[in-house]
Amino acid sequence: MAAVDMTGVRKKDANVSDLVFKYMRPEHLPHIWCPGCGNGIIMRDVAQAIENLKIDRNNLVVVSGIGCSSRAAGYFDCSTIHTTHGRAIAFATGIKVARPELEVIVITGDGDASAIGGNHLIHAARRNIGLTVIVMNNSIYGMTGGQYSPTTPTGDYGTTAPYGNIDRPFDVALLAAGAGATYAAHATVYHVPQAIKLIQDGIAHKGFSIIEVADVCPTYYGRKNKKGSAVDMMRNQKENFVTAAQAHRTCRSRKPGKRP
């Protein structure tokens, strides 16, 4: 589903600048991400989902690991903890088990969640502890300068894949679902209203939830793979992503040549 009627959704949403002042730490903005990076969109999606659910910031903990995605935690005005590479979900497990009444959201990246932190991801999914994991999947290691990650498509280029990536990529949401996640979803940075809804439902879900958001990295992944500008990459998401019959469930059917 490429075309989305966003007018109705927009009316319900808070004004963007209101969101910034309500849920962010403006003194730490602007963020460090490159022009055209999708991380800021995802961060805003999360803030909107929190607003829609009326979550008390004093009761909210945002946990991140290492990488571009990890800087998101510090921008939220709640209890935030920027941990070590790959371990955000393990730290978050300790927080949630010690204080189950807290709302705990993990913001992670494709390398953080599915390479160095892959073990923690599948075990948190298996335990079905009430964490919400948002994966900013930009298909590349951005912070270190464009190395291929576990979600880089086969054949694509990275600084450590100068002849093309010979590995197959993970589908992180499906991986988590296979490990027992009771809520797993795919979203994109282009399809904002759907992403907000999916994140909102994920947070509201009792049990482990994961929302893998297809991100855009024009600086490294885009440039290495001739994907054009940030706008071109967003347009690519608009034209090539489809919804599944049940958009917020994992049992999805893929259309040939399209990414869910």
């Binding site: 946990v63 209890s79 903890i81 941990t83 070590t84 371990r87 393990a90 730290f91 978050a92 497990t93 300790g94 927080i95 088990v97 010690a98 204080r99 807290l102 073990n119 923690h120 599948i122 075990h123």
Partner: peptide
Amino acid sequence: GKFIQMEDEIASIACAIGASTT
């Protein structure tokens, strides 16, 4: 109190640190 057996040694210390922050 709470006891949790984690998936590995790294997760164990990470989890304990997480709990301590609360």
